[in-house]
């Protein structure tokens, strides 16, 4: 088993599949009256969050607690970090406290890679800057597999601000590893350079959502921050929504079995219409539930739980 999960590229097909299969076992557990496993009793998991992200933090917290680990939540606000403590010094402090795993969310790309130099325990990337969010990709893959029965050969379209999206990078890497065919869709200003060479040679790019939709098994909408307008990535929220938003007419053009995903939080009415978000095709709520199972599997396997 790998030691750290810093990038979805850390996972080969075998390891990724093992995580998804383990997550399925974990999910079965949540149907039981007692939801707890003793697997990580006596182990310490630190949630080191430099960015506010209640959703991701509580998901990791629930995952660790269901495995009986001791959980320490370390949020940068109101801590030594706000007094100017460096990542290295924080890492050495956590090391001294005996952290077996550190789950880190940070606004700087690559912060988990830096952290892994300074702690002995496992490092799990819970989102770093505009780089990656590998457990999100795992829970997305898990959701696709449970809804559609497979990942190999699946046609997945990821739509929106790919340039700034850590979710998109991790998804391209993981889905390609697992045999899915990914198409990135968005205005040219929001598609990064040389994306196929950078991430996976099978990755396709399209600037035309309407042409992609009928051939998609999965349409994954990314959050688009309205402030990107000020930086000339697109002229207005209205134009963005018209060209790249998923509304009802577009959803009707999707194949009958196709699903709609969104990593949240959503801008309803911007990249996704409320009717679409709340439709039976939408897996948005399921994704959240699956997140806990997948993170349990990741912690369990990284920490060698028995």
């Amino acid at each position: 088993m790998i030691k750290h999960l810093r990038s979805a590229a850390d996972l080969d097909a075998e390891t990724a599949t093992l995580i998804l299969d383990t997550a399925a076992e974990m999910a079965a557990l949540s149907g039981r009256e007692v939801k707890k496993l003793p697997a990580l009793r006596g182990r310490t998991v630190v949630n080191l969050f430099y960015e506010d992200s209640t959703r991701t933090r509580i998901s990791f917290e629930a995952a660790a607690k269901r495995l009986s680990a001791d959980v320490i939540n370390f949020s940068a606000k109101g801590s030594s970090v706000s007094k100017g403590e460096s990542l290295k010094d924080t890492a050495l402090t956590l090391q001294a406290m005996g952290a077996d795993a550190v789950v880190i969310r940070h606004s700087a790309s690559g912060a988990p890679h830096r952290l892994a130099n300074w702690v002995e325990g496992s490092v799990v990337n819970a989102g770093d800057g505009t780089h990656e969010h590998p457990t999100q990709a795992l829970l997305d893959a898990y959701t696709m597999r449970s809804r559609l029965g497979r990942l190999d050969g699946l046609r997945v379209s990821i739509v929106g601000d790919v340039l700034h999206s850590r979710v998109a990078r991790s998804n391209v890497l993981l889905l390609s590893t697992l045999g899915a065919q990914v198409t990135l869709v968005g205005p040219p200003t929001l598609i990064p350079l040389d994306v196929a060479a950078a991430l996976s040679p099978s990755t396709k790019v399209s600037y035309d959502l309407d042409s992609v939709i009928p051939d998609s098994d999965v349409v994954m909408m990314l959050r688009v921050q309205t402030e990107r307008m000020q930086d000339s990535y697109f002229p207005s929220a209205r134009e963005y929504s018209r060209r790249y938003g998923l509304d009802l007419p577009r959803m009707r053009n999707m194949p009958e079995h196709a699903i709609v995903m969104h990593p949240g939080p959503m801008n309803r009415g911007m990249e996704i219409a409320p009717e679409v978000a709340d439709s039976p095709r939408s897996t948005i709520v399921e994704q959240v539930a699956n997140g806990v199972s997948v993170r349990m599997a990741v912690l369990y396997l990284l920490l060698g739980g028995k």
Binding site: S109, G110, G129, T130, H131, E132, R169, P192, L193, D194
Partner: peptide, 16 residues
């Protein structure tokens, strides 16, 4: 900007 804009900056998620 954090590094050369190109394939590697795309992979690393660093502003080009």
């Amino acid at each position: 900007a954090q590094m050369h804009e190109g394939e590697v900056s795309t992979r690393l998620g660093l502003t080009g």
